[in-house]
Amino acid sequence: MSALTLGPLLFHWPAAQRRDFYARIADEAPVDCVYLGEVVCSKRLAWYEKDLPEIAARLRRAGKQVVFSTPALITETREVKAVAALAALCAAESLIEINDLAAVPLLGGQKFVSGPLINVFNEATRDVLVRLGAVRVNAPIELSKSALATLAAGNPTGETEIFAFGRQPLAISQRCYHARAHDLHKDECLFVCEHDADGLMAAELDGRPLLAINGTQTLSHGYFVLLDEIDELRAAGVSHFRLSPQALDMVAVATLYRAALDHAVGTEEVLARLQEGIAPISVINGYLHGRPGMAWQPRRP
């Protein structure tokens, strides 16, 4: 049985748009689990923190597991406090996804999901995390198909999650590049990242699109799409497939992926329909095949 998950919304959307997005996900998207919370910039949380309990409740009522995601970097006091508070709140009913190992001591022994920004490149590291309380382990996006298979195969928790759709998070920094691109300082950033629902494009000097900037995070410009590799990875033990929210019709994306997982629609057709929605932005999957991440390896005929 494969689960479809919706990763945390990485971009800074206005609170109303965010509420509407999750309402529709709760009502219509065939996903089994939804990650909520701020991973990229803890300053953003103030804009929508108050909405999260209601969003979570609605998702749960719709039968979805809710996991609270925590920041990629926990350095400032407000970040430490926020994670500690979340841990206390979630103790009873929800899991927490960690994206910085600094979160582990704040969990007080609670079980957790190891997020995709934790460096779990190998089975020895996976086992350390399981000993520390991980019940589900996300693989880093950089791993190839065969490494993913090895990582999933011996996972004692039986829950291995991989990134399946969306712009791939490539780097995180203490510096805010959205602010920098607007000649602003991080402390007085005016939340300029709000204007780019899918990130701000950075192109090569000759104009070819290359990256997408999202505050302190840098993502791929192309959309990662994992489709043809699903069956092989599932056979190896991958249990959860993650869709990363973009400013697209994510209900449609989730529906297509559900159909692909269930073999209800062929992957070629799913890909064609995803590409329609994404165009003119390209699709990428290079990491899976040991190639540059920005490459696309078409299905072998």
């Binding site: 880093p140 780097a171 791929s220 540059p292 991440g293």
Partner: peptide
Amino acid sequence: CYLSSYMTG
């Protein structure tokens, strides 16, 4: 940081 592998593999 995966920027370099994104471009080179």
